[in-house]
């Protein structure tokens, strides 16, 4: 496989291979928390932050502990425990040092542990055999890509309230159709650069 620079991976993760619109990761919180721009932005920031830290930590643990001892199959347990631990620590840390940030970000933190995007990025970086720097940029880029899409969706949904939508399509149905249209837009980027 040819070597991709971390910067390329960073931009590819935001646009051409958006974690949400091409891999369907993080859909649950995307559907439920995309009603207001403000909350969507807060959750997006928290996800980006956690993604960057966990992809770095999971990389270190996988290649220094799991692989040398030949216990790669334990990675699911190790990764998810690590993600939960990071989220917990982060929550305590933010609460201790910044009251404002805690009020704005705190409520989203517990949601992040079960966001599939976090675990998904860690698993993708192992499968694609990224280097450390590539993994961190991939994590950060995926987080920003997720942020971009959820904020865009929240912006659309705020205006959707005044529209006439068929009753059966209200809620998840219309959101999925809009995501489909957005995904088509993002597919248009795919000629620029490809990461698998």
């Amino acid at each position: 496989m040819e070597y991709l620079s971390p910067i390329t991976i960073f931009f590819a993760a935001i646009f051409t291979s958006n974690i949400l619109l091409t891999y369907f990761l993080g859909m649950c919180s995307f559907l439920s928390v995309s009603k207001q721009i403000k909350t969507a932005f807060g959750l997006g920031l928290a996800v980006t932050f956690v993604l960057t830290i966990t992809s770095a930590l999971n990389y270190i643990i996988y290649y220094t502990l799991l692989q040398p001892f030949g216990i790669e199959y334990l990675r699911y347990i190790v990764f998810i425990v690590l993600v939960a631990a990071v989220v917990q620590l982060l929550e305590m840390f933010i609460q201790r040092f910044s009251e404002v940030l805690y009020i704005n970000l705190g409520i989203f933190l517990p949601l992040i542990t079960v966001n599939c995007a976090i675990l998904g990025v860690s698993l993708f970086m192992i499968i694609r055999e990224y280097t450390f720097l590539q993994s961190v940029f991939f994590g950060a880029g995926s987080g920003l890509g997720w942020l971009l899409v959820i904020v865009a969706m929240a912006g659309i949904r705020e205006r959707l309230n005044e529209q006439k939508i068929p009753p059966a399509l209200r809620g998840a149905g219309i959101v999925l159709i809009i995501s489909g249209i957005m995904a088509m837009g993002f597919v248009g980027f795919s000629g620029i650069v490809q990461i698998q």
């Binding site: 619109l21 091409t22 891999y23 369907f24 068929p166 009753p167 059966a168 399509l169 998840a172 149905g173 219309i174 999925l176 159709i177 995501s179 489909g180 249209i181 995904a183 088509m184 597919v187």
Partner: peptide
């Protein structure tokens, strides 16, 4: 085969079942 197809199919399915 691409991602948008998945979104639209699921949306259609939800639409039909809700109706």
């Amino acid at each position: 085969i691409m991602a948008p197809g998945g979104f639209f199919m699921l949306a259609l399915f939800i639409w039909v079942s809700n109706s």
